[in-house]
Amino acid sequence: MRVLFSAPDWARWQPALEAACPEAQFVRDAPAESVDAIIYAPGSGIEDFTPYRNARLVQSLWAGVERIVSNPTLTQPLARMVDPGLAQGMTDYCTGWVMRAHLGMDNYAQDGIWRNGTVPPLAHARRVTVLGAGALGMAVARALKALGFDVATWSASGRGTEGIAAYPGNAIEDALRRAEILVTLLPDTPATRDMIDAHALSLLPEGATIINPGRGTLIVDEDLIAALDSGHLRHAVLDVFRVEPLPPAHPYWAHPAVTVTPHIASETRVETAAQVVAENLRRAMRGEKPLFLVDREKGY
Rank of each mutant, 00 (worst) to 15 (best):
F5D: 02
F5L: 04
S6Q: 10
P8L: 11
D9C: 03
D9H: 15
W10M: 00
W10E: 03
A11W: 08
A11H: 11
A11V: 12
R12G: 13
Q14A: 14
P15S: 07
A19Y: 04
A20Q: 03
Q25W: 02
D29C: 01
D29T: 03
P31Q: 08
P31M: 15
P31K: 11
A32H: 01
A32Y: 06
A32M: 00
A37R: 09
Y40H: 04
G43W: 00
G43D: 04
S44H: 01
G45W: 04
F49T: 00
T50L: 00
R56F: 01
L57E: 11
S60T: 04
S60Y: 07
L61Y: 06
G64A: 12
G64S: 12
I68C: 02
S70I: 15
S70Y: 12
P72A: 06
L74F: 05
L74S: 09
L74W: 07
T75R: 12
Q76Y: 06
P77K: 04
M81L: 15
M81C: 09
V82N: 07
D83H: 06
L86E: 08
L86G: 12
A87F: 03
A87N: 06
G89I: 02
M90C: 13
M90W: 14
W97L: 10
M99T: 11
A101H: 10
H102F: 12
G104R: 11
D106R: 14
D106M: 15
I113V: 15
R115N: 08
R115F: 10
G117T: 07
P121R: 07
L122F: 15
A123Y: 08
H124K: 15
R127L: 07
V130H: 14
L131V: 12
A133H: 05
G134C: 13
L136Q: 06
G137M: 11
A139Y: 13
R142E: 13
A146P: 02
S155E: 04
S155G: 05
G158K: 04
R159Q: 11
E162K: 07
I164F: 05
A165G: 03
A165I: 14
Y167H: 02
Y167K: 06
G169I: 09
A171M: 14
E173N: 11
D174I: 04
A175Y: 08
L176N: 09
V183K: 01
P187T: 06
T189H: 09
T189I: 08
A191P: 01
R193E: 10
A200T: 06
L201Q: 02
L203E: 01
L204N: 09
P205N: 10
E206I: 10
G207R: 04
T209V: 08
I211V: 12
N212T: 05
G216L: 06
T217A: 15
I219W: 07
E222F: 10
D223W: 02
D223F: 10
A227K: 09
D229N: 14
V237D: 05
L238P: 00
D239P: 02
F241R: 01
F241V: 04
L246W: 10
P248I: 09
A249H: 15
P251H: 12
W253F: 08
H255I: 13
A257W: 01
V260H: 02
V260L: 00
S266M: 10
E267K: 12
T268D: 03
T268G: 00
T272M: 08
T272I: 01
A274L: 01
V277S: 08
V277F: 04
E279W: 14
N280P: 06
R282I: 05
R282F: 14
R286Q: 14
G287I: 12
D295Q: 13
D295R: 14
